[in-house]
Simulated assay, not measured.
Amino acid sequence: MAEITAALVKELREKSDAGMMDCKKALQETNGDVEAAMDWLRTKGLSKAAKKSDRAAAEGLVAGLISGDGKTGVLIELNAETDFVAKNDKFQQAARDIAKVALDVDGVEAISAAKLGSGDSVQDMVTNLIATIGENMRLRRSARLTVGEGAVALYLHNAQGEGVGRLGVLVALEGAGDQAKLKDVGRKIAMHVAGTPTPPLALTSDELDPAVVAKEREIQTQTAMESGKPREIAEKMVEGRIRKWQEEVVLLKQPFVMNPDQTIEQLIAETAKEAGGPVAVKAFVRFALGEGVDKGPAGPDLATEVAQMAGRA
């Protein structure tokens, strides 16, 4: 059996926040293997991380990062139990570190398993944070956009620190023209996605979720029928209403918040002329903290703040 030194016990205690004798017992049971001992403690329910794993984690931070060449951007959402933790330096740094990993590794499972410079995995880092800070945490989701030619722009709203906020948007613009111009326009579109009163559901009408369209169609049909119209006539009336709804929820059709007389589609056409070549929005991603976990708005007066920023742009 491997010698269970005081240094090994200390290392395990710092990682798990379990009691000294529990750490010694875990190391004895696992022949001095610290990682296996961590698993042993979690199995026995002796690690603080394990005890907190079933508690709701819907606060935290959205972190974003753009690669050095400007062609790849990532967003990640790291959750905790309270908004107080979002102000913790270690938690903020962990979110930034995860975003950095996400530049090269795509998907929550792959990111969680990826190694950091310390040799620990991202999941190890999160587990250690749980023990240190005392709240349940989880890497909830990630997104990665990349372009061959063009630029990926990032906008973080309600910033809590460098590279972290409560709402993040990525916009990928493809084009071979002026890259600085593309980056600037991309960021303005990202601000639009963050601040528009009706967040876009898709880039184009064709990309809308068929189930969402079907649900909206049924709602509009029922509304028309309640006015006394036969279903056949109501369905014809609905077509116009569906087109109007699509203009409200499709990014390219939305009025640009910084210039409501211009749609995003028209802004892109104008940008293409100024950039001296074709420009297209390849994709966008919007992460609002706690979205879908019974949370409130990502931040106060978001549309107003974006409009104010537009005036300073």
Results as ranks from 00 to 15, higher is better:
G32P: 00
R217V: 02
V122R: 04
L65K: 15
L201H: 06
R144H: 14
G240Y: 09
A63P: 03
T5F: 06
N259Y: 09
D206K: 13
R42S: 11
L167P: 00
A151D: 02
G165A: 09
R217W: 02
V281P: 01
K100L: 13
A275P: 02
K100W: 03
R96H: 08
N158A: 14
T221I: 12
T204R: 09
E11I: 11
E3W: 08
K236A: 13
K181M: 15
A275R: 00
F91H: 03
K100S: 14
F256Q: 04
M237C: 10
C23P: 04
D301H: 14
Y155N: 04
V105Y: 01
K15L: 15
P297M: 11
V9Q: 01
L61H: 01
I242N: 04
T5I: 07
R42A: 13
M237I: 15
K44Y: 04
T223I: 14
K71D: 10
L252S: 08
K188P: 00
M21Y: 05
V85G: 03
S121E: 00
A50L: 06
D39V: 14
N136S: 12
G168H: 05
L41M: 08
E248L: 10
A283E: 14
I4F: 09
L251C: 02
K244A: 06
A283I: 01
E265P: 08
G168W: 02
K87F: 15
R141K: 14
I242G: 05
D120K: 14
F84P: 11
A37Q: 02
I98W: 04
E291S: 10
Q262S: 13
A172L: 09
E174Q: 15
S16F: 04
K215P: 00
P230D: 06
M21E: 11
A102F: 07
D54W: 09
H157I: 05
A63C: 08
G299R: 03
E207L: 12
G73K: 02
A310P: 06
Q123R: 09
V147T: 09
